[in-house]
Amino acid sequence: MVAVATRDLSRHYGKIQAVNQLNLKIPTGSLFGLIGPNGAGKTTTLRMLAGLLEPSSGDIRLNELSQKQYWREIQWQIGYMPDFFGVYDNLLVWEYLDFYARCYRLTPERRARAISDLLDLVDLGEKRDVYVHTLSRGMRQRLCLAHALVHDPQILLLDEPASGLDPRARVEMRMLLRELQSMGKTILLSSHILVELAELCDQVAIMERGQLVVSGAIDEVLRKAAGRRTIAIQVLNDPGCNSTPDRAIALLEQIPSVQNIFPQDRVVAATPGSSGGLGITSIEIEFYGDEFARADLLEKLVSEKIRVAAFNETITNLEEAFLRLTQGEVG
Protein backbone atom coordinates (compact mmCIF):
# COMPACT_ATOMS: atom_id res chain seq x y z
CA MET A 1 0.00 0.00 0.00
CA VAL A 2 1.12 3.51 -0.77
CA ALA A 3 -0.06 6.07 1.77
CA VAL A 4 1.11 9.19 0.02
CA ALA A 5 1.84 9.52 -3.66
CA THR A 6 2.45 12.63 -5.69
CA ARG A 7 2.84 12.81 -9.42
CA ASP A 8 4.59 15.79 -11.04
CA LEU A 9 3.42 17.95 -8.15
CA SER A 10 4.25 21.60 -8.81
CA ARG A 11 3.41 24.85 -7.16
CA HIS A 12 4.58 28.33 -7.99
CA TYR A 13 4.01 31.63 -6.24
CA GLY A 14 4.07 34.12 -9.05
CA LYS A 15 7.36 33.50 -10.77
CA ILE A 16 8.94 31.60 -7.91
CA GLN A 17 8.77 27.86 -8.38
CA ALA A 18 8.37 26.52 -4.86
CA VAL A 19 7.80 22.88 -5.76
CA ASN A 20 8.80 21.57 -9.14
CA GLN A 21 7.63 18.23 -10.55
CA LEU A 22 7.82 16.37 -7.28
CA ASN A 23 7.25 12.63 -7.35
CA LEU A 24 6.99 11.03 -3.94
CA LYS A 25 5.91 7.57 -2.93
CA ILE A 26 5.52 6.84 0.73
CA PRO A 27 4.56 3.31 1.73
CA THR A 28 1.97 2.79 4.44
CA GLY A 29 3.37 2.49 7.92
CA SER A 30 6.68 4.11 7.23
CA LEU A 31 8.33 7.02 8.90
CA PHE A 32 9.34 9.24 6.05
CA GLY A 33 11.65 12.22 6.40
CA LEU A 34 11.65 15.15 4.04
CA ILE A 35 14.96 16.96 4.23
CA GLY A 36 16.09 20.12 2.59
CA PRO A 37 17.55 23.51 3.27
CA ASN A 38 15.28 26.45 4.03
CA GLY A 39 13.16 27.35 1.03
CA ALA A 40 13.46 23.93 -0.53
CA GLY A 41 9.68 23.58 -0.73
CA LYS A 42 9.11 21.19 2.18
CA THR A 43 6.42 23.29 3.85
CA THR A 44 4.71 24.00 0.52
CA THR A 45 4.63 20.27 -0.18
CA LEU A 46 3.17 19.45 3.22
CA ARG A 47 0.57 22.19 2.95
CA MET A 48 -0.51 20.88 -0.42
CA LEU A 49 -0.78 17.38 0.99
CA ALA A 50 -2.86 18.74 3.88
CA GLY A 51 -5.22 20.38 1.40
CA LEU A 52 -4.42 23.92 2.46
CA LEU A 53 -2.82 24.93 -0.80
CA GLU A 54 -3.85 24.13 -4.32
CA PRO A 55 -1.16 22.58 -6.51
CA SER A 56 -0.42 24.52 -9.68
CA SER A 57 -0.25 21.20 -11.47
CA GLY A 58 0.16 17.53 -10.71
CA ASP A 59 -1.76 15.00 -8.66
CA ILE A 60 -1.86 13.97 -5.04
CA ARG A 61 -3.16 10.62 -3.89
CA LEU A 62 -3.56 9.88 -0.21
CA ASN A 63 -4.43 6.33 0.81
CA GLU A 64 -5.03 5.67 -2.87
CA LEU A 65 -7.67 8.42 -3.04
CA SER A 66 -7.30 11.31 -5.44
CA GLN A 67 -7.21 14.56 -3.49
CA LYS A 68 -9.09 16.48 -6.16
CA GLN A 69 -12.09 14.21 -5.94
CA TYR A 70 -12.07 12.90 -2.39
CA TRP A 71 -10.78 15.80 -0.32
CA ARG A 72 -13.70 15.48 2.09
CA GLU A 73 -12.87 11.84 2.85
CA ILE A 74 -9.17 12.62 3.02
CA GLN A 75 -9.73 15.23 5.73
CA TRP A 76 -10.69 12.41 8.09
CA GLN A 77 -7.55 10.43 7.31
CA ILE A 78 -4.84 13.01 7.80
CA GLY A 79 -3.53 14.85 10.80
CA TYR A 80 -1.52 17.98 10.12
CA MET A 81 0.86 19.85 12.36
CA PRO A 82 2.12 23.12 10.89
CA ASP A 83 5.65 24.38 11.48
CA PHE A 84 4.46 27.62 13.00
CA PHE A 85 1.28 27.58 14.96
CA GLY A 86 -0.43 29.52 17.68
CA VAL A 87 -2.81 28.55 20.42
CA TYR A 88 -6.08 30.13 21.45
CA ASP A 89 -5.98 32.38 24.47
CA ASN A 90 -8.09 31.74 27.52
CA LEU A 91 -8.58 28.08 26.77
CA LEU A 92 -7.63 25.16 29.00
CA VAL A 93 -5.57 22.28 27.66
CA TRP A 94 -8.45 19.80 27.76
CA GLU A 95 -10.80 22.37 26.20
CA TYR A 96 -8.31 22.88 23.40
CA LEU A 97 -8.39 19.19 22.53
CA ASP A 98 -12.12 19.09 23.14
CA PHE A 99 -12.55 21.81 20.52
CA TYR A 100 -10.75 19.81 17.84
CA ALA A 101 -12.53 16.62 18.91
CA ARG A 102 -15.82 18.45 18.40
CA CYS A 103 -14.63 19.63 14.98
CA TYR A 104 -14.22 15.96 14.07
CA ARG A 105 -17.72 15.27 15.46
CA LEU A 106 -16.62 12.74 18.04
CA THR A 107 -19.36 11.53 20.35
CA PRO A 108 -19.11 12.87 23.92
CA GLU A 109 -17.90 9.51 25.28
CA ARG A 110 -15.28 9.08 22.57
CA ARG A 111 -14.27 12.69 23.05
CA ALA A 112 -13.61 12.28 26.75
CA ARG A 113 -11.66 9.09 26.17
CA ALA A 114 -9.62 10.53 23.31
CA ILE A 115 -8.68 13.59 25.36
CA SER A 116 -7.41 11.62 28.34
CA ASP A 117 -5.65 9.05 26.13
CA LEU A 118 -3.92 11.71 24.08
CA LEU A 119 -2.89 13.75 27.11
CA ASP A 120 -1.31 10.60 28.50
CA LEU A 121 0.34 9.81 25.18
CA VAL A 122 1.99 13.22 24.89
CA ASP A 123 2.67 13.28 28.62
CA LEU A 124 0.55 16.33 29.41
CA GLY A 125 -1.84 14.57 31.80
CA GLU A 126 -0.95 16.87 34.68
CA LYS A 127 -1.43 19.97 32.56
CA ARG A 128 -5.04 19.14 31.79
CA ASP A 129 -6.48 22.18 33.57
CA VAL A 130 -3.80 24.68 32.68
CA TYR A 131 -4.27 27.51 30.21
CA VAL A 132 -2.85 26.64 26.82
CA HIS A 133 -1.06 29.96 26.37
CA THR A 134 0.97 29.37 29.53
CA LEU A 135 2.53 26.14 28.24
CA SER A 136 6.19 26.00 27.28
CA ARG A 137 7.27 25.60 23.69
CA GLY A 138 7.92 21.87 23.96
CA MET A 139 4.58 21.27 25.65
CA ARG A 140 2.78 23.27 22.99
CA GLN A 141 4.52 21.25 20.32
CA ARG A 142 3.32 18.04 21.93
CA LEU A 143 -0.17 19.44 22.43
CA CYS A 144 -0.24 20.39 18.76
CA LEU A 145 0.76 16.83 17.90
CA ALA A 146 -2.05 15.59 20.13
CA HIS A 147 -4.53 17.81 18.31
CA ALA A 148 -3.49 16.23 15.02
CA LEU A 149 -4.20 12.80 16.50
CA VAL A 150 -7.60 13.50 17.94
CA HIS A 151 -9.49 11.70 15.17
CA ASP A 152 -7.00 8.82 14.97
CA PRO A 153 -5.79 9.60 11.44
CA GLN A 154 -3.92 7.13 9.26
CA ILE A 155 -1.46 9.65 7.88
CA LEU A 156 0.39 12.25 9.90
CA LEU A 157 1.91 15.28 8.19
CA LEU A 158 4.30 16.94 10.59
CA ASP A 159 6.12 20.08 9.55
CA GLU A 160 9.32 20.46 11.57
CA PRO A 161 7.92 18.79 14.69
CA ALA A 162 11.23 19.07 16.51
CA SER A 163 12.16 22.63 15.67
CA GLY A 164 12.80 24.88 18.62
CA LEU A 165 12.89 22.03 21.09
CA ASP A 166 15.63 21.47 23.60
CA PRO A 167 17.56 18.17 23.30
CA ARG A 168 15.51 16.44 25.96
CA ALA A 169 12.19 17.43 24.39
CA ARG A 170 13.58 16.34 21.06
CA VAL A 171 14.32 12.88 22.37
CA GLU A 172 10.83 12.71 23.80
CA MET A 173 9.35 13.76 20.48
CA ARG A 174 11.38 11.08 18.75
CA MET A 175 10.11 8.42 21.12
CA LEU A 176 6.58 9.65 20.59
CA LEU A 177 6.92 9.37 16.83
CA ARG A 178 8.27 5.83 17.13
CA GLU A 179 5.32 4.93 19.29
CA LEU A 180 2.94 6.37 16.71
CA GLN A 181 4.64 4.43 13.97
CA SER A 182 4.24 1.25 15.96
CA MET A 183 0.52 2.01 16.04
CA GLY A 184 0.56 1.58 12.27
CA LYS A 185 0.43 5.20 11.23
CA THR A 186 2.26 6.60 8.27
CA ILE A 187 4.28 9.61 9.31
CA LEU A 188 5.71 12.18 6.96
CA LEU A 189 7.86 14.74 8.69
CA SER A 190 10.06 17.49 7.45
CA SER A 191 13.20 18.66 9.09
CA HIS A 192 16.53 20.24 8.48
CA ILE A 193 18.07 18.46 11.43
CA LEU A 194 19.54 15.54 9.60
CA VAL A 195 21.14 13.55 12.34
CA GLU A 196 17.76 13.15 13.89
CA LEU A 197 16.12 11.93 10.72
CA ALA A 198 18.92 9.48 10.13
CA GLU A 199 18.18 7.83 13.45
CA LEU A 200 14.44 8.06 13.20
CA CYS A 201 13.26 7.57 9.66
CA ASP A 202 13.02 4.48 7.51
CA GLN A 203 13.05 6.52 4.38
CA VAL A 204 14.16 9.98 3.46
CA ALA A 205 13.83 12.30 0.52
CA ILE A 206 16.18 15.18 -0.03
CA MET A 207 14.69 18.26 -1.63
CA GLU A 208 16.33 21.32 -3.01
CA ARG A 209 14.75 24.28 -4.78
CA GLY A 210 11.47 22.47 -5.13
CA GLN A 211 12.96 19.37 -6.66
CA LEU A 212 13.61 15.93 -5.36
CA VAL A 213 17.33 15.28 -5.32
CA VAL A 214 17.26 11.75 -4.04
CA SER A 215 14.84 9.55 -2.15
CA GLY A 216 14.71 6.08 -0.68
CA ALA A 217 15.75 4.15 2.38
CA ILE A 218 18.45 5.78 4.48
CA ASP A 219 21.17 3.28 3.47
CA GLU A 220 20.16 3.61 -0.12
CA VAL A 221 20.41 7.39 -0.03
CA LEU A 222 23.77 7.10 1.65
CA ARG A 223 24.92 4.69 -1.01
CA LYS A 224 23.62 6.93 -3.76
CA ALA A 225 25.43 9.84 -2.26
CA ALA A 226 28.43 7.59 -1.80
CA GLY A 227 28.16 6.42 -5.41
CA ARG A 228 29.92 9.57 -6.32
CA ARG A 229 32.22 10.15 -3.46
CA THR A 230 35.17 12.36 -3.07
CA ILE A 231 38.43 10.72 -2.16
CA ALA A 232 41.33 12.64 -0.85
CA ILE A 233 44.72 11.11 -1.67
CA GLN A 234 47.92 12.38 -0.20
CA VAL A 235 50.93 11.54 -2.30
CA LEU A 236 54.49 11.76 -1.05
CA ASN A 237 56.60 13.82 -3.39
CA ASP A 238 59.66 11.61 -3.44
CA PRO A 239 61.53 11.86 -6.78
CA GLY A 240 64.06 9.29 -5.57
CA CYS A 241 61.38 6.60 -5.64
CA ASN A 242 59.86 8.05 -8.79
CA SER A 243 56.80 9.05 -6.80
CA THR A 244 55.66 12.47 -8.00
CA PRO A 245 52.21 13.99 -7.98
CA ASP A 246 52.36 14.45 -11.73
CA ARG A 247 52.85 10.75 -12.24
CA ALA A 248 50.05 10.00 -9.80
CA ILE A 249 47.71 12.31 -11.69
CA ALA A 250 48.68 10.76 -15.00
CA LEU A 251 47.91 7.36 -13.51
CA LEU A 252 44.60 8.46 -12.12
CA GLU A 253 43.57 9.93 -15.44
CA GLN A 254 43.80 6.48 -17.00
CA ILE A 255 41.26 5.02 -14.61
CA PRO A 256 37.72 5.36 -16.02
CA SER A 257 35.89 5.53 -12.67
CA VAL A 258 37.80 8.65 -11.74
CA GLN A 259 35.88 11.60 -13.10
CA ASN A 260 37.51 14.75 -11.89
CA ILE A 261 40.89 15.34 -10.45
CA PHE A 262 41.58 18.35 -8.31
CA PRO A 263 45.28 18.54 -7.54
CA GLN A 264 45.58 20.80 -4.54
CA ASP A 265 49.05 22.00 -5.60
CA ARG A 266 49.89 22.51 -2.02
CA VAL A 267 52.69 21.04 -0.11
CA VAL A 268 51.10 19.90 3.06
CA ALA A 269 54.26 19.25 4.92
CA ALA A 270 57.89 19.25 4.03
CA THR A 271 60.28 17.09 5.86
CA PRO A 272 63.03 19.36 7.06
CA GLY A 273 66.55 18.50 6.04
CA SER A 274 65.63 16.38 3.06
CA SER A 275 66.90 17.23 -0.38
CA GLY A 276 64.82 18.37 -3.27
CA GLY A 277 61.09 19.03 -3.14
CA LEU A 278 60.18 16.35 -0.68
CA GLY A 279 56.68 16.88 0.67
CA ILE A 280 53.10 15.80 0.50
CA THR A 281 50.67 16.79 -2.22
CA SER A 282 46.99 16.37 -1.68
CA ILE A 283 44.84 15.30 -4.61
CA GLU A 284 41.06 15.16 -4.49
CA ILE A 285 39.25 12.99 -6.94
CA GLU A 286 35.62 12.38 -7.71
CA PHE A 287 35.23 8.67 -7.80
CA TYR A 288 32.36 6.49 -9.03
CA GLY A 289 32.47 2.96 -7.74
CA ASP A 290 32.00 0.68 -4.77
CA GLU A 291 34.40 -0.53 -2.11
CA PHE A 292 36.09 -3.05 -4.44
CA ALA A 293 36.77 -0.43 -7.07
CA ARG A 294 38.27 1.73 -4.35
CA ALA A 295 40.52 -1.10 -3.18
CA ASP A 296 41.58 -1.70 -6.77
CA LEU A 297 42.43 1.95 -7.16
CA LEU A 298 44.62 1.95 -4.10
CA GLU A 299 46.30 -1.28 -5.14
CA LYS A 300 47.03 0.18 -8.56
CA LEU A 301 48.63 3.27 -7.08
CA VAL A 302 50.75 1.25 -4.72
CA SER A 303 51.83 -1.24 -7.37
CA GLU A 304 52.99 1.67 -9.49
CA LYS A 305 55.26 2.71 -6.62
CA ILE A 306 53.31 5.80 -5.81
CA ARG A 307 53.82 6.45 -2.14
CA VAL A 308 50.38 7.07 -0.74
CA ALA A 309 50.41 8.75 2.67
CA ALA A 310 46.64 8.92 3.08
CA PHE A 311 43.69 7.61 1.22
CA ASN A 312 40.27 8.50 2.62
CA GLU A 313 36.83 9.30 1.42
CA THR A 314 35.35 12.50 2.66
CA ILE A 315 31.68 11.51 2.86
CA THR A 316 30.86 9.62 5.97
CA ASN A 317 27.32 10.43 7.00
CA LEU A 318 23.98 11.68 5.88
CA GLU A 319 24.77 15.23 6.82
CA GLU A 320 27.59 15.39 4.35
CA ALA A 321 25.66 13.43 1.79
CA PHE A 322 23.02 16.06 2.09
CA LEU A 323 25.44 18.93 1.80
CA ARG A 324 27.13 17.27 -1.13
CA LEU A 325 23.88 16.51 -2.88
CA THR A 326 22.30 19.91 -2.41
CA GLN A 327 25.34 21.96 -3.29
CA GLY A 328 23.99 23.80 -6.27
CA GLU A 329 23.16 20.44 -7.68
CA VAL A 330 19.82 21.49 -9.10
CA GLY A 331 20.37 25.14 -9.81
Binding site: R47, A50, Q75, M81, G86, Y100, C103, R105, A148
Partner: peptide, 13 residues
Amino acid sequence: EKQTYEMLLTTPL
Protein backbone atom coordinates in the same frame (compact mmCIF):
# COMPACT_ATOMS: atom_id res chain seq x y z
CA GLU B 1 -2.43 36.15 12.58
CA LYS B 2 -2.22 33.73 15.47
CA GLN B 3 -1.56 30.86 13.06
CA THR B 4 -4.43 28.77 14.28
CA TYR B 5 -6.40 29.03 11.05
CA GLU B 6 -4.65 26.27 9.14
CA MET B 7 -5.22 23.73 11.89
CA LEU B 8 -8.86 24.71 11.87
CA LEU B 9 -9.13 24.38 8.11
CA THR B 10 -7.70 20.87 8.01
CA THR B 11 -10.61 19.68 10.17
CA PRO B 12 -13.81 18.60 8.42
CA LEU B 13 -15.55 21.63 9.92
